[in-house]
């Protein structure tokens, strides 16, 4: 297992380097430059390029960047917030996005599991209808529509929840963003949970367990629940990455100071250094989550053998 993890870590590091190089090359083809502003003369633009080292050959820029990165320096922003270290920009915003992302995932997964499993266990018509409505809505309707709906009814008309994120009251002002983002998660999780649980309930070992005279509660928790969790974990993990990168629309709507809007703004402002840093972090995040997932598989289901040989 350790050998496997080591191998995966090396592959991950190489992948990240390749991603970084591709990002560098792609940005060369991006139209415009961070400094093309109406009122600047070509000489002044050249001055700015020189100040940030953008006049150097691309390969020099690449290696300088990697060197700095190992020292924990991701460079400074060129045009989004000139001269601000990117680590500052991201470290201020990442916790907020992560908090809302995690909260949405936990709430969504929890509700989704309950809805999915209960619908599978008790083949009840009312429950089935609730399940269908929620999963259909959750999957078909984008989160910003929910956000608009909640803002209008809970925030504006009923005046129950704050319309904007406020750093002084992070919990209550995260409620609406979390609600809007967790509905989609809930729908996806509920569908997977229901499908998987229905399969497991029909399986021979559950029938055997029942024949042994185990209580239906024991059968459900010990056999069905545990065995149907695996695909749910896979889907939750991949959802987690998208939740942690933040939702541009939701963050904009509730004025959440997160990283969601940062990447889009950076692309629009041709702020290369921010684009590279964020894309790199997202890639790293994705690779790490996938690695953890593989290890979790192994723990939950001993049939999965890492490395493939044994």
């Amino acid at each position: 297992m350790l050998k496997y993890i080591g191998k995966r870590l090396i592959i991950s590091a190489v992948t990240l380097l390749v991603i970084l190089l591709i990002l560098f090359l792609l940005l060369q083809f991006m139209p415009g430059s961070p400094f093309n502003d109406e009122k600047l003369s070509p000489e002044q633009i050249e001055q700015l390029r020189a100040k940030y080292g953008l006049d150097q050959p691309i390969i020099v820029q690449f290696f300088t960047y990697i060197g700095n990165m190992f020292r924990g320096d991701l460079g400074v922003s060129y045009s989004l917030s000139p001269n601000t270290p990117i680590t500052d920009l991201i470290s201020n915003r990442f916790p907020v996005t992560v908090m809302i992302g995690f909260a949405s995932m936990i709430v969504g997964t929890f509700l989704g599991l309950i809805l999915g499993f209960f619908t599978a266990f008790f083949k009840n018509r009312v429950l089935g209808a609730i399940y269908s409505i929620f999963t259909l809505l959750g999957i078909a309707v984008p989160s910003y529509i929910f956000a608009m709906f909640f803002s209008n009814f809970l925030g504006y008309k009923a005046n129950l929840l704050p319309l904007l994120y406020d750093f002084r009251s992070p919990v209550i002002s995260s409620v609406m963003p979390v609600m809007a983002m967790s509905l989609g998660v809930m729908a996806v999780v509920a569908r997977f949970a229901k499908a998987e649980a229905s399969e497991v309930i029909k399986s021979d070992y559950v029938l055997f367990a029942k024949c042994q005279g185990l209580s239906s509660r024991t059968v459900m928790t010990k056999y069905v629940l545990k065995n149907s969790l695996m695909p749910v974990i896979t889907v939750v993990a991949s959802l987690l990455v998208s939740l942690l990168t933040g939702s541009l629309v939701i963050e904009q709507m509730f004025s959440v100071p997160g990283v969601g809007g940062l990447l889009t703004n950076a692309i629009n402002a041709n702020d290369y250094s921010v684009v590279i840093a964020l894309s790199f972090i997202y890639s790293a995040l994705y690779i790490i989550v996938m690695l953890i997932l593989d290890i979790l598989y192994c723990i939950i289901d001993p049939r999965v053998r890492l490395g493939g040989k044994n």
Binding site: S151, G155, Y156, N159, L163, L164, Q252, M253, S255, G261
Partner: peptide, 18 residues
Amino acid sequence: IQIVQNTQQAIMCYKSGV
């Protein structure tokens, strides 16, 4: 100064006195 990028949200904030 509150940055509200979404104008619709800004109008709701205004109307509700925020």
